[in-house]
Computed example of a mutant assay.
Amino acid sequence: MSVTVAELSVTGDQLRAAVGTFPSGVTVVTTLKEDGTDVGLTVSAFASLSLEPAMVLLAVDNASTSLPYLTVGAPLGISVLADGQGPVAYQFSKRGVDRFAGVATQRGRGGVALIDAAAAFFVGDITAAYPGGDHTILTVAVRECGTHETARPLLYQRGQVHDWPEYQI
Rank of each mutant, 00 (worst) to 15 (best):
V5M: 10
A6Y: 03
A6P: 06
D13E: 14
Q14N: 00
L15A: 09
G20K: 03
T21Q: 15
T30R: 02
T30G: 01
L32E: 00
D35P: 08
G36C: 05
T37M: 12
L41K: 01
V43G: 05
S44G: 10
F46W: 04
A47G: 08
L49A: 01
P53S: 01
M55C: 13
V60N: 08
D61N: 11
N62A: 13
A63N: 11
S64N: 12
L70Q: 02
T71F: 03
T71H: 10
L76H: 04
G77D: 02
I78G: 14
S79I: 04
L81M: 02
A82R: 03
D83I: 02
D83W: 02
G84A: 10
Q85Y: 11
A89Q: 07
F92G: 05
K94Q: 13
G96K: 05
G96M: 05
F100Q: 06
G102Y: 00
A104S: 14
G108S: 07
R109Q: 14
G110V: 00
G111Q: 05
A113K: 05
I115M: 00
A119F: 11
A119H: 11
F121A: 01
F122C: 00
F122L: 15
V123E: 14
G124D: 12
G124Y: 08
I126T: 14
T127P: 08
G132T: 13
G133H: 09
G133K: 14
G133R: 12
H135K: 10
T139Q: 14
V142W: 13
V142T: 08
R143Q: 15
E144W: 01
E144D: 15
G146M: 05
T147P: 08
T147L: 11
T147S: 14
T150S: 13
A151S: 10
A151Y: 09
R152L: 15
P153H: 05
P153T: 11
L154M: 04
L154G: 01
L155E: 03
R158T: 15
R158Y: 11
G159N: 07
Q160F: 04
V161Y: 05
H162S: 07
D163G: 15
W164C: 09
E166I: 09
